[in-house]
């Protein structure tokens, strides 16, 4: 493998190194690349949304197929631009009302079912014979104790000076373990991004890695 001859790879390598320069200290090149990233992301999103959302969902049905039903969502969408002036900003209440109303109607029963009912059901503890193995029963027992003690911590601990009982302390231990697991996963995620960039710099760009 040889050093890349693609101008785009060189630009990507420069941008990567510019971002990494922040690790030494904040600098103007890092700030420039940060601004470039925000601009490019916004521009890309606008083009994709126009091409894949506005054109097929509004432009074609309304202005090509002349389906006048689409005039309603089109006008509702236009009302969002009313927020650009203080005098007309109140008009945005109309599309927001539609969005919130339909969103809540769609979401409420299913979100409640998914995040509350099914989770409560999954936390219920049954006799050991109900589980496929002893390990599964122990897991279910840990989840049961974890959920109860964490709920106790949130509902029955009042301020720093409260004399915390064993249940609340167990709840805190479960929360800490949860935070620890999340932190561990976060470290892993960030490091994998670093490894990806290193592979790009030493492999795709410099051609040292195969």
């Amino acid at each position: 493998m040889a050093i890349s001859s693609s101008i785009w790879v060189w630009i990507a390598a420069f941008l990567t190194l510019a971002v990494f320069s922040f690790l030494y200290k904040d600098n103007i090149i890092y700030k420039m690349v940060e601004a470039l990233f925000v601009g490019v992301s916004a521009g890309y999103s606008i083009v994709i949304i126009l091409k894949h959302s506005f054109v097929p969902n509004i432009w074609k049905p309304l202005f090509v197929s002349h389906n006048l039903l689409y005039l309603i969502p089109f006008l509702l969408g236009l009302l969002f631009f009313a927020m650009l002036s203080r005098k007309t900003a109140y008009l945005t209440h109309i599309p927001f009302a539609f969005l919130i109303g339909s969103g809540a109607g769609f979401a409420l029963p299913l979100v409640f079912q998914t995040n509350v009912m099914a989770q409560v059901k999954g936390t219920m503890l049954f006799a050991p014979s109900h589980y496929p193995s002893l390990g599964a029963f122990i897991n279910a027992l840990i989840i049961f104790i974890g959920v109860l003690t964490v709920l106790f911590y949130f509902f029955f601990s009042r301020g720093e000076k409260t004399n915390r009982g064993i249940i609340v302390k167990t709840g805190i231990a479960f929360i800490m373990i949860g935070f620890g697991a999340s932190f561990g996963y976060t470290v892993m995620a960030r490091l994998s991004l670093l490894v990806g960039r290193l592979y790009f710099l030493f492999g795709t760009w410099l051609g040292i890695l195969h």
């Binding site: 697991a181 996963y185 976060t186 994998s192």
Partner: peptide
């Protein structure tokens, strides 16, 4: 299949 940040 999610990134490690989201896995938990």
């Amino acid at each position: 299949g999610v990134t490690a940040v989201l896995a938990a």
